[in-house]
Design a protein around this nucleic acid. Structure first.
Length: 206
DNA sequence: AGCAGAATAT
DNA sequence: CATATTCTGC
């Protein structure tokens, strides 16, 4: 069945183009070398270990160790969208990465995250459909709604083959939106211990 | 010290 | 590309 591809677009165009979303991300992904060259102080950037280096010459970009990628809820949402829109078949690290179009994002980044995301999905399926909301764990994954077709059996008890959805009028798209309480933890900084190394949270969902 | 999350190795 | 293991920050 190809029905799952039908209602992508309305969602897609809303989620996809978010240059503002990308800016903070790319900041975090700037190489230390590049950041130095531009006098950028990256909050997410820890002090480069080149204690004896004079920063005189620029090293090849491929040799540089990229800073550890932080998967913000926004970035994860983009990830989920990409996977959703690609479909399970084509949702492989490479294509996901390409669709996300995040500067500096590598295939390994996506692959690693995809692995964990699959484990998360499996975990959710293993548990009953209505038992636990979720553990305190899985913060990240819980931050973004999981597309229905990711799970073998959605939240319905009956699978209705002939549903017409006529009562879902077009002027009521909200039924898909799923309000979601959204605890809105604001993520909070780890400590007020002086400095926070965490990434910023625009918390602008939509 | 123990866990969660990302990187790296098979 | 998927899975397992290791590494790192909290």
């Amino acid at each position: 069945m190809r029905e799952d591809d039908s209602n992508w677009f309305w969602k897609w165009e809303e989620e996809l183009p978010s240059p503002e979303d990308l800016m903070p991300l790319s900041q975090s992904l700037i190489t230390p070398d590049l950041a130095l060259a531009f006098n950028i102080q990256n909050p997410n950037q820890q002090a480069p270990p080149n204690s004896s280096a004079e920063e005189g010459g620029e090293e090849p970009a491929r040799t540089l160790k990229r800073p550890r990628l932080v998967w913000t809820p926004q970035l994860h949402k983009r990830f989920v969208d990409a996977v959703a829109h690609l479909g399970i078949k084509n949702a492989v690290p490479k294509t996901i990465m390409q669709l996300m179009s995040v500067d500096g994002l590598t295939r390994e980044n996506v692959a690693s995250h995809l692995q964990k995301y699959r484990l998360y999905l499996k975990r959710m399926q293993g548990i009953s459909n209505n038992t636990p909301a979720d553990a305190a764990t899985d913060h990240l994954f819980a931050s973004s709604p999981v597309p229905p077709h990711f799970l073998p059996r959605p939240t319905s008890d009956h699978f209705m083959p002939f549903v017409h959805f006529r009562h879902f009028s077009t002027d009521h798209p909200s039924f898909i939106r799923q309000p979601q309480p959204q605890p809105q933890p604001q993520h909070t900084n780890a400590e007020d211990n002086g400095r926070k190394i965490l990434t910023l949270f625009p918390s602008a969902e939509d």
